[in-house]
């Protein structure tokens, strides 16, 4: 098992060109009680076609980092870069938000086609793309429904395929399965695995679930509790294709134990910080 310690590890040298380069990302929120450091000196490079998960105690700045990557928030110091691809018309990134952020005023299919519509793709073409993605996650029948008419799990699937239909250079997902019940969650993990192994998009994936992080990722990044900084990196060397069955193999349990060793302590520290 390759295990690189926190501060000791130099920025990872990637063989393929890095798709995402973030250096010393720091975010300080000005609040009434003075500046509040949410994220400090966070480094992360993600290779083209790599699936990287970020795990850390609640409030450690994971969403903040993702928003900065997406260009939805400013950074106080450091830099982030997403390398554009060959096709300049492709969007750089699409976010699956922690809250679903599916537009209640648009039908399911119009939600999925939203990114394409904003880029001026003709109606027939964008509806065809959206229908294809709805078909893939079993929501074809619900194309004409409004979000309030479908379940939470379906809404989150809509939010995921809205990002996929947009065909971005990198996919940024913030706890996309966080609010789901255990069964739906397993089904969607399987679906995500299948889709990712076919599309091989560059993904930054935030989750609270260790199982999910290990199952889906090539690499798992651990963050410290408040203020967030890099704690450790784990290479997940379980061969693909994987399915939810992969969680039963010995190597999985081994990795899980190693990650939890560090994360458990950090979570405990985070809870002490709160009191």
């Amino acid at each position: 098992m390759k295990l690189s310690g926190a501060q000791a590890s130099p920025p990872r040298e990637t063989a393929t060109a890095a798709k995402i380069i973030s250096r010393n990302v720091t975010k300080i929120y000005p609040t009434v009680r003075g500046p509040m450091t949410a994220l400090t000196d966070f480094n992360l490079d993600v290779a083209d076609g790599e699936f990287v998960s970020v795990v850390g105690p609640s409030g450690c700045g994971k969403s903040t980092y993702l928003r900065i990557l997406a260009g939805l928030d400013t950074l106080s110091a450091g830099s982030v870069l997403i390398r554009p691809g060959a096709d300049p018309r492709k969007p750089l990134n699409s976010v699956v938000f922690q809250e679903y952020a599916v537009f209640p005023w648009k039908t399911v299919i119009d939600n999925v086609a939203f990114g394409l519509e904003m880029r001026g793709v003709a109606r027939a073409e964008r509806l065809e793309t959206a229908a294809y993605w709805l078909e893939r996650v079993g929501l074809r029948k619900f194309a004409g429904y409004y979000p309030h008419q479908i379940s939470g799990g379906m809404k989150q699937r809509v939010s995921i395929v809205r990002a996929l239909a947009n065909d971005p250079e990198v996919l940024l997902m913030d706890e996309p399965l966080g609010a789901l019940d255990a069964q739906t969650r397993i089904v969607l993990q399987d679906e995500l695995l299948r889709i990712w192994e076919e599309t091989r998009k560059t993904v930054v994936y935030i989750t609270h679930s260790l199982d999910e992080a290990i199952l889906l990722s090539d690499r798992v990044i651990l963050m410290t509790a408040h203020p967030g900084r890099h704690l450790a990196t784990f290479e997940i060397d379980i061969p693909r294709p994987r399915t939810v069955e992969t969680m039963n193999i010995a190597r999985f349990a081994e990795l899980r134990g190693a990650v939890w060793d560090l994360l458990g302590k950090e979570v405990a520290r985070a809870m002490e910080l709160q009191t």
Partner: peptide
């Protein structure tokens, strides 16, 4: 809800 504004921006609405 600011998340709708963020989603709009992220998906290219200007």
């Amino acid at each position: 809800d600011p998340v709708f504004l963020m989603a709009g921006r992220n998906y290219g609405a200007r």
